[in-house]
């Protein structure tokens, strides 16, 4: 196997994960760089959804099919990551709902949902 072939194999074998990394990092960037509390939560959902994509990608098998047993199918994709991510999605929506509820209460008591302004109000001077 020559080097060029190796690189191509690596590219086609891994590009999926690389894109997922980019997606995760965009979400992560929104969480830490943006000051708007709603936007932060949206960033968090992007971050988490991208992690889900990573998990689901790893379970995929070439030529496989959805893991529901049927006759004359021999190759199934891996069901375990699906199970894990079903749970993780539920955890994600639970966190989102709670975060949004907090944002509503913060808006009511601070009058704003911008991080800089809130911190300015808490530490005057």
């Amino acid at each position: 196997m020559d080097a060029g072939n190796d690189w191509a194999a690596a590219f086609f074998g891994l590009y999926n994960y690389w894109i997922v990394v980019v997606l995760m990092m965009v979400g992560f960037y929104i969480v830490i760089a943006h000051g708007n509390l709603i936007k932060k939560i949206i960033g968090l959902t992007i971050f988490q959804t991208s992690v889900f994509i990573y998990y689901i990608s790893m379970g995929n098998v070439d030529g496989g099919t959805a893991p529901i047993l049927a006759d004359n199918i021999s190759q199934y994709s891996n069901p375990l990551p699906h199970v894990l991510i079903l749970t993780a999605i539920v955890v994600g929506i639970a966190t989102t709902a709670l975060g949004l509820a907090l944002a509503i209460r913060i808006k009511e008591s601070y009058g704003t949902i911008e991080e800089e302004i809130i911190q300015g109000m808490d530490n005057p001077g």
Partner: peptide
């Protein structure tokens, strides 16, 4: 091939969470 997950993500990611966020920004 993750049909169960797709089902859930569609109802949560595109459904419930969008709805909750819209309700939230109508207040914030």
């Amino acid at each position: 091939d993750a049909v169960d997950v797709a089902f859930t993500e569609a109802s949560v990611g595109a459904g419930i969470s969008t709805l909750l966020m819209l309700t939230t920004i109508s207040m914030t």
